[in-house]
């Protein structure tokens, strides 16, 4: 049986995921508050507001406190000489093999929040698919990108 990949994401990724989820929840809350304000001036019924807010808070708890933790615990990757293996997913667990000879290009990317924490994601593209390793230290991500790109270049095309 295949060994489970052993590399984890950086613990800081967890923090970033929580921030992203919080921002999303704040947006929903603002919408709910907006509705509440509007219902004062117009003739909207305001009783729906309470269930909506309760729903948003529950959802927020799950998305901020529970899911990122599970997601981080699950995420593993490993770069072998001839292939990359990923293992991730909370509700649906996915395991992917990407052979080095199929890798077309490797990029690092960074949104504003990732940049703030000096993190980056690595994306690996084949002719048919794109895969992402989110939440690595900037330095690790750069090294990983160059390392995978190097292995992909060297891979034997006759295989």
């Amino acid at each position: 049986m295949r060994a489970t990949p052993d590399q984890r994401l950086t613990k800081k990724a967890l923090k970033v995921w929580r921030i992203t989820a919080s921002l999303e929840m704040i947006l929903y809350l603002l919408l709910a508050v907006g509705y509440g304000l509007a219902s004062r001036y117009f003739n909207f019924s305001s009783w729906v507001l309470l269930p909506i807010i309760i729903f948003i808070i529950t959802l927020g708890y799950v998305k901020i406190a529970v899911i990122p933790e599970l997601q981080w615990k699950r995420w593993r990757y490993k770069i072998y000489e001839n292939e990359v293996e990923l293992l991730y997913g909370v509700f649906v667990v996915r395991r992917v093999i990407i052979p080095m000879i199929r890798v077309q290009h490797v990029d690092t990317k960074q949104g504003p929040i990732l940049r703030r924490y000096r993190l980056a994601a690595v994306t690996i593209s084949t002719a048919a698919t794109v895969h992402e390793i989110p939440g690595l230290e900037e330095k690790t991500a750069d090294e990983l990108r160059d390392y995978i790109a190097g292995l992909a270049r060297e891979a034997d095309p006759d295989d």
């Binding site: 509700f91 996915r94 990407i98 698919t129």
Partner: peptide, 22 residues
């Protein structure tokens, strides 16, 4: 180009998998 296997919450109970090839 890549091979993927996935397992949903329900599939885990029976230890079944789904396979995807691209």
């Amino acid at each position: 180009q890549a091979m993927q296997s996935s397992q949903t919450f329900l599939q885990r109970i029976n230890d079944l998998h789904t396979i995807h090839v691209s």
